[in-house]
Each structure stands twice: as structure tokens, then as C-alpha cells.
Design a protein around this nucleic acid. Structure first.
Lengths: 326, 326
DNA sequence: CTGAAAGCGCTTACAG
DNA sequence: CTGAAAGCGCTTACAG
């Protein structure tokens, strides 16, 4: 040591006004030279806060999730919080392990980000008495707050965009694992048809897996229809990617023969050929909002937080007016 | 409690053979019913292990990084380790904060994943006495082990592929922040030219930022050359995405007028139009390997770990034979 | 402004 | 097979 007790050291390192200025400086200098670093574990044992949050995702390799986590981490860092990242993979056993892990780590809060999270999962987490913020997920528990994209409105806009372009046979290519998000995007699609007096044809609805693979496969029967669609609204950009490949492989041109709309506006979407018309989700910002919601709850805000983020339709080159020749 | 001391509880919960079978069961049942969960902080205070690793990335929204982190997390989870995720953003202040955070948290090991990490950063981390594994990064410290893609060989293969297609004016579109990776990929490119007796033209080398934006801008002067390249080898797939858009915007066709090769084989690359010829990096697996290296070091392996992963050239539709008409 | 004491919730020798 | 004791490294009233 350097002439004082560890009590004083503890105070000095946290810049307590209870310690004489010069003592603080001396201690900090010595601590710095010695490379001393207070143990977070010991501290959290007494403060009863871990300064840690848990983030669960279904798949960190999904670019949408990556954008969201980036926003979460940025805000957490600004407030001195560390983030535990856990990939649930939507597997029940992993979900259970993640929940237990978060409990043992005594995380101060949890953010669940996923396009498809097991239905029993959030109840599992909400059992612990810790605030939970859901990002683009259902809200089945009273412990959960949420940040959600305005799926219905955004999908309505996207579908209307196609209707205004004179398309009459518009397909919906959903995500069979998308649960709530898929249901809402589908609802927006239906609403748009209805509002504009277009008939709904169940043959024009197909389901992929939210990834290019599944969408590519789901697109095939749509194109094989006697009266194929002249436009397709996809659950997300990744699905659009698969749909577009299927369309090309049939020798059809986008957007001349068929228009495609996505959802998310991934960073790459503007670089596709043709550039993808899509609904922008401000992923990074949504991540930040989720983290800020948690911060507000930590600070004692008791009212429910249910933030609805508007989606913005970005019109690019994958959509064009319907032409008779089709 | 339920009739025993906390010592016994502690032992029972960890399934110690020192405790009578039925006592173990009774305690576990009660603990389960009460929702008891041992505090990781208290435990790690005495065991002197946190069962935690720190993962630093420059940008979690980068799809390459997402793939790697996915592999890391998967393996960590299998071994009961939790992962702290920190985004350094290549900003020096954040790097310092991350290092301090990891020290305070007493992480058992660190993995640094990044295409471009600050040069002073790893020394900063290696100052703490904790094993470090670098993924696709320099190896400037004796505390660091590494998992790296075989950049030179893979780039040589990629460039040779273009040479075999009869291309003679092949550009290299690098990443000015890519440091080591960029230098090695460039070296492979140079080696291929040399081996095949092709002249090197410095005018055919341009630098982007490893993202579509920078590559798109860097591609422009290349195409404006009196003798433009007929093929371009890009630092990574994201750069290829930008290069391709620039090429199209000049009214040139891929691969008829110009061939494009990327590096990474992101999930989306096979869905591009045209599908991208690229070098596959097994991102997920590399992440797993990095984590396994750490695990081996924990287990006492003292030999240096420097794993070189071969890249695999995946030929798709963005490359074609050179034709006179160009 | 500083010190002595208690305690956060565990694990692990040491006894028995 | 179980208990009593010590201790991990901090923070924070409580005194002075």
C-alpha cells in the first residue's frame, strides 16, 4: 500500500469528495502505476448491481440483429454497462441455459432481440425480477417493455406502393417462424388490398423461413401459378434476396416482369442489382432505444414503455409500374 | 433453509460426491422450488475464475464479424462460459475503455476479432495477464495466439483464377484500414502476377474502406483509366458489392465486360446478381477455433497456437473469360 | 478527511 | 457425510 487503508483507497478511486484532493491524486497515481483494477465481482457483491445487461438474440449472424446489437452495445458502453451476448438459436435448451446464466450473473436488465423467439421463453426470463425489453417481439409478460417497428403501417405503405404502381396480383412471401412480426406484416398487406378494393387471393401467399433459402423455395410455386403475381412483398430483405434469385432463374426480369419489395433495409440492400425497394427499420437506433428504455427503468421510471418506431418506405429499382405486356 | 448449513448446500448444488445422495436431491429440489440461483460474482471471488470471456470486435454489424461471433458464442456456451461483447469501433478511447472493462470483469480470456484494429490495442490488452486469441489480425505480442485465414495463398488462387481466364489487366481493390489482411491479400495478388509473368501496374491498385461505399468510390478512377482493368480482385465481399455497383453505373456488364472476385463468401454473396465468385472464409468455424484455442490454453496447453485456415475459392457467375471485344 | 468494522454470497480446506 | 471457520476483494455506514 501507500500509507492509507483500503477504505480510503476505495473512496479515492471513485473520486469521493470525502477524501483530500491530494490524497486522491496520490492514490490514483499509485494505483495506475501498479496497474490496479478494482474487481467488478467484489464490487457488485456489495452494491448489488452488476452493471451488466444480458442480450439474447436468435442469431447474431443475422444482419438485422447485428445492427440492433451494435446500437445496444454503443449505448450500454456510454453508460458504463457491459453486455453479455447470448445466442439462443431458438432452441429451447439453449434458451433455458441462457436464462439461468443471466440469473447467476445477476444482470441488471435483459434485452431480447429476435425475429423468432420461443413462445415460452420470455415468461422464463420474466420470472426473474429484472426488467426486460423486447425488440420486435410479442409482449406476453408484465415485466416486459418493448420497442417495435410499426409493422402494420409500414407493410400497408409497402403494399400500397405496389398497388399505386397498378399491380393487381400482389403476393405476400412471409416467414413461417416470424410469429408476431409476420402476422402484422401480413395484416398490413391484407389491409392495403382491402382499402384499395383488391380481391385477396390465398394462392398468392407463401411462406419461407426469413432467409434466402426458404424464400427462394417458397417463391417457386408462386411463379408456377396459372396467373402468377406481378409483384411480391417479402417479409424481409433476406427473403427478398432469395425470391429475386428464384425469379431470375425463371428467366424473369426485375422489375420489368415482376416487382419486389423487402423489409429491413439492410446495409447491402441498396447495393443489390437491382437496388431493393424496401421498408427501412432503423436497426441501430432501435437498439439504442431498447437500451435507453432499460436505463430509464433503472432510473425509476415506472410507466410502461412501449415504443413504436415508424418504418420508412425506400423506393429503389426493384419496383416498377405494372405493364400489360406482363 | 432446509436443515443443513450453506456449506452443504453449496456442495449439494455442485453435485459433490461428499454429500449423501438423498440430501443432494432434497436440497436441489428445494433450491429449484425456491428459484435459488447461486451468485456468479460471489463464486468467482473465491474460485478466481469468472467463467467469462471478452470478445472485442470493431463492428458487430459487419456480417463477417457476426459469423465469427456466432461460432465463438456457440463454443463458449457449450463449455459454460459467458461472453462479454464489446465493440471497439476502432476508436482509441473505446479501446481503452474495453480493455479496462475486461480487466475489472476479470475475464478468463480475450478474443479480438476485427479487420482493422488499432495498432496499440493488442499491447494494451496483453498487458493484463490473460490469454488472448487474435482472429485475422497481427500478432504483435507474446501473449497472443491466433487464428488466421491463409490470405496469401487464397489471394493467389483468386488472382490466378482470373489469369487462367486470360485476364491481363487485373486490378486490386484493397482496404486502407485492413492492415495485415490487406497487405497479405495484396501480396498474394502480386505473387500471382509474378508467377504468371504478368506485369504489375500500380495504376491498377486502389483503396477503399472495406465497405461498399469506399469501394464504390475507389472503383471509379480505375474504370476511368485509358486502359481500364478487365477484372478486379476485391479485399472483401462488401467491397465487391460497392465495386459492382460502380461498374454497373458505368454501363458495364459483369462478367461480360469485367470480372469481379471478392473475399469472405458472406451468406448473401451467392444470392447476388450475378452470384459472386469469392474466397470462402469459414467464419463460424474460425470463431469456434478461436474459442477452442482459448479452451486449450485454459487447460494448460503451453505451446503457441497459430492456426492457419485455408480459404477456398468459390467460382460463381461474376467471373468469365476475357474476350477481345472488351 | 480517514480508519476500523461489518458484510455482500459464495467455496473450500480443516475437523470431526 | 456434515459443520464451523476463514477468506475472496470490495463498499459503506459508523466513529472519530
Amino acid at each position: 500500500m501507500a500509507g492509507v487503508t483500503h477504505s480510503t483507497v476505495s473512496r479515492a478511486l471513485r473520486n469521493s469528495p470525502l477524501v483530500r484532493r491530494e490524497t486522491v491524486e496520490r492514490i490514483q497515481r499509485i494505483a495506475h502505476e501498479a496497474g490496479y483494477r478494482a474487481s467488478a465481482a467484489a464490487r457488485s457483491l456489495v452494491t448489488r448491481r452488476s452493471d451488466t445487461i444480458g442480450v439474447v438474440v436468435t442469431n447474431i449472424a443475422d444482419p438485422f440483429v447485428g445492427g440492433v446489437v451494435s446500437g445496444i452495445e454503443e449505448t450500454a458502453d456510454q453508460h458504463g454497462l457491459s453486455v453479455f451476448l447470448a445466442n439462443s438459436n431458438a432452441e429451447p435448451e439453449r434458451e433455458v441455459r441462457v436464462a439461468r446464466m443471466f440469473e447467476e450473473r445477476r444482470v441488471d436488465g435483459i434485452i431480447v432481440t429476435a425475429s423468432r423467439v420461443g413462445a415460452q421463453y420470455v415468461p422464463l426470463l420474466s420470472h426473474m425480477q429484472v426488467p426486460i425489453v423486447l425488440l420486435n417481439n410479442q409482449h406476453p409478460s408484465q415485466f416486459a417493455h418493448s420497442v417495435m417497428i410499426a409493422n402494420v403501417q409500414a407493410s400497408l405503405d409497402a403494399t400500397r406502393h405496389l398497388i399505386v404502381l397498378a399491380h393487381r396480383r400482389i403476393a405476400y412471401l412471409g416467414d413461417r417462424y416470424g410469429y408476431q412480426s409476420d402476422a402484422e406484416r401480413y395484416a398490413g398487406y391484407r389491409q392495403a388490398l382491402e382499402t384499395h378494393g383488391l380481391p385477396f387471393d390465398p394462392l398468392l401467399v407463401a411462406y419461407g423461413d426469413g432467409k434466402p433459402e426458404g424464400a427462394e423455395a417458397a417463391m417457386a410455386p408462386l411463379l408456377a401459378l396459372p396467373q402468377p403475381p406481378t409483384a411480391v412483398f417479402c417479409y424481409n430483405d433476406l427473403s427478398a434476396l432469395g425470391a429475386m434469385r428464384q425469379i431470375r432463374s425463371r428467366g424473369l426480369r426485375i422489375p420489368v416482369d415482376i416487382s419486389v419489395v423487402g423489409f429491413d433495409d439492410l446495409h447491402i440492400s441498396q447495393y443489390l442489382n437491382p437496388a431493393l425497394t424496401t421498408v427501412r427499420q432503423p436497426m441501430r437506433q432501435m437498439g439504442r432505444m431498447a437500451m435507453e428504455t432499460l436505463l430509464q427503468i433503472f432510473a425509476g421510471a415506472e410507466s410502461g414503455h412501449d415504443i413504436k418506431v415508424p418504418g420508412e418506405l425506400i423506393v429503389r429499382q426493384s419496383t416498377a409500374p405494372y405493364k400489360e405486356s406482363q
